[in-house]
Amino acid sequence: MIELRNISKSFSGRMILSGVSTCFEKGHINLVIGGSGSGKTVLMKCMVGLVEIDDGELLYDKKMFSGLSRAERKPFRQEIGMVFQGGALFDSLTVEQNVMFPLNMFTDLSIQDKRERVNFCLKRVNLEKVNQLSPSELSGGMKKRVAIARAIAPNPSYLFCDEPNSGLDPKTSIVIDNLIKEITEEFNITTIVNTHDMNSVLEIGDKIIFLHQGKKWWEGTVNDILQTDNQELNDFIFASKLAKGVKQKYGKN
């Protein structure tokens, strides 16, 4: 479980996040949605400690994370897996070396055991016979899947995905969504996903946070979204004709 208490962050006097409080439950997919510039990525970077918060508190399973030094955060970091928007695979390493990277750094497993773990993770994301390929030889969807394999290789307790569907076709997006959902349930991980993809919102979101102008504007479930009369949220979610149709059919008009 990850708890945010009144998180605020500004850059050069410009407020990006203002008093964001929420709680992300274990074993659930927690979606953070919002328009471009609403503060989603900054919020995620604050949560993983890549950006320091100005104000507020951040707790991982009731243990304070914000305000800790780099050394004090080390045990937390090894529990965190992150899938970046572009995959962030290491260009100079093969797929196998990419997935093995965190295992090399933090475990004393034998090379045989590490290979087995790599093969298990790659198989889990439906990738086989790609071990010796370099990231440049992979398609966008395959890169995302390798990034997920790398993120789950050290058995993390928390999985962060920053727009995992960006740049993917609708069919591959569904594959990635389902994969994240299965992994979250199978390994009982606290998963937080930043997304613009409305299909993800409606398909895999257990809990949804809507950020608007750096503030938590709305919070609820998929069913709540269909019923809500929050103007900004409706404008964002049901912007397309197709989505408006869904709202008219299943939701409150």
């Binding site: 970091r77 962030a88 695979l89 290491f90 260009d91 933090f106």
Partner: peptide, 18 residues
């Protein structure tokens, strides 16, 4: 520099590596 702009350095930091 390329590793920085493609978030590869962030990926290293996330893992707790200096």
């Amino acid at each position: 520099g390329t590793m920085r702009v493609t978030e590869q350095i962030d990926a290293i930091e996330i893992m707790g590596i200096n």
